[in-house]
Deep mutational scan, measured.
Amino acid sequence: MQIFVKTLTGKTITLEVEPSDTIENVKAKIQDKEGIPPDQQRLIFAGKQLEDGRTLSDYNIQKESTSHLVLR
């Protein structure tokens, strides 16, 4: 499924993911596309910070959901 990640600069990154993917996996995909190390990434969805060990389905992130990327 596709999800979108919006950066603070207003850029939207499109990612191909599975509901069973962990947040860690998603951060690795963002690193592949954008070159941002996962330890600098914070992903926010529905006002919550997403934890590495959880999956997209844990957070009820469905296709075409948009989460926000904040850099630390």
Rank of each mutant, 00 (worst) to 15 (best):
K11N: 08
Q62Y: 12
L8I: 12
I44S: 12
G53Y: 11
Q49F: 13
L50A: 03
T55H: 05
E18C: 11
I23G: 01
L71R: 05
I44W: 15
R54C: 10
G10T: 03
I23E: 00
I30G: 00
D39M: 08
D52R: 03
A46Q: 15
Q49R: 09
I23T: 04
E24M: 13
G53C: 08
P38E: 07
R54Y: 13
P37H: 11
F45I: 04
L71K: 05
Q31P: 01
E34M: 15
D32R: 13
D21W: 11
Q62S: 14
D21Q: 04
K33G: 04
A28N: 12
L69E: 01
L69T: 02
Q40C: 10
P37M: 06
L71A: 06
T66K: 10
Q41W: 05
T7F: 15
N60L: 05
L43D: 00
Q31Y: 15
L50Q: 01
K33I: 14
K48P: 01
V5A: 02
H68K: 07
V5L: 06
A28C: 08
G53I: 06
T55P: 05
Q49E: 15
H68I: 15
G10F: 04
V26K: 00
T22A: 04
V26R: 00
T66Q: 10
L50S: 01
K29S: 04
K29T: 03
T12S: 06
T66V: 13
L50D: 00
G53P: 05
V70F: 14
P38Y: 12
I3K: 00
K48I: 15
Y59W: 02
R42M: 15
S65K: 07
L15G: 00
L50R: 00
I36F: 10
T14D: 05
Q31I: 02
K29L: 10
E64G: 15
L56K: 00
D58A: 05
T14F: 08
P38A: 15
K48F: 09
P37S: 09
Q41P: 01
I61E: 01
G47T: 04
P38Q: 13
Q40M: 11
Q41T: 05
K33S: 10
I61V: 07
T9M: 10
K11F: 08
K6D: 08
L56G: 00
Q2L: 14
K48W: 07
E18F: 14
K11G: 08
S67E: 13
G10A: 03
D58H: 10
R72K: 13
N25Q: 15
A28P: 00
K63C: 07
A28K: 15
T66P: 08
I30K: 00
L8Y: 14
L43W: 03
L8G: 11
K27I: 03
H68S: 09
S20L: 09
K11S: 08
Q2M: 13
G35W: 03
R72M: 15
Y59R: 01
T7A: 05
T22V: 04
F4G: 04
Q31E: 09
Q41G: 03
E18G: 08
V5N: 01
S65I: 09
I61Y: 03
R54G: 05
Q49N: 12
K6E: 09
R42P: 01
L56P: 01
V5P: 00
T9G: 12
K11E: 07
I3Y: 02
I30D: 00
D52F: 03
T7G: 05
Y59G: 01
G53K: 11
Q41R: 01
R42F: 14
D21A: 07
D21P: 00
E18T: 14
E64D: 14
E64C: 10
E24P: 02
F4V: 10
M1P: 02
E24G: 13
L71T: 07
L8E: 15
H68A: 08
K63I: 09
A28D: 06
Y59E: 02
P37W: 06
I13P: 00
G35T: 03
Q49V: 15
V17H: 02
P19M: 09
R54K: 14
L8R: 11
L15F: 04
T12V: 14
R54V: 05
L56M: 04
K6P: 01
K11V: 08
D52Y: 04
K63S: 14
Q49S: 09
F45D: 01
S65E: 08
M1R: 03
L71M: 08
V70D: 07
Q40S: 08
F45S: 04
S67A: 15
K11P: 04
E51T: 06
T9Y: 14
T22F: 07
T12P: 03
T55F: 06
T14H: 07
V5E: 00
D58K: 02
T66N: 11
D52E: 08
R54D: 05
K33D: 03
I61C: 02
F4K: 09
K29P: 00
I30H: 00
I36H: 07
I44K: 04
P38L: 12
L43S: 00
P19T: 08
E34P: 01
D21V: 04
Q2V: 15
D32K: 13
K11Q: 09
I61N: 02
F45H: 11
E24L: 14
E16H: 11
Q62P: 10
E18L: 15
N60E: 07
R42E: 13
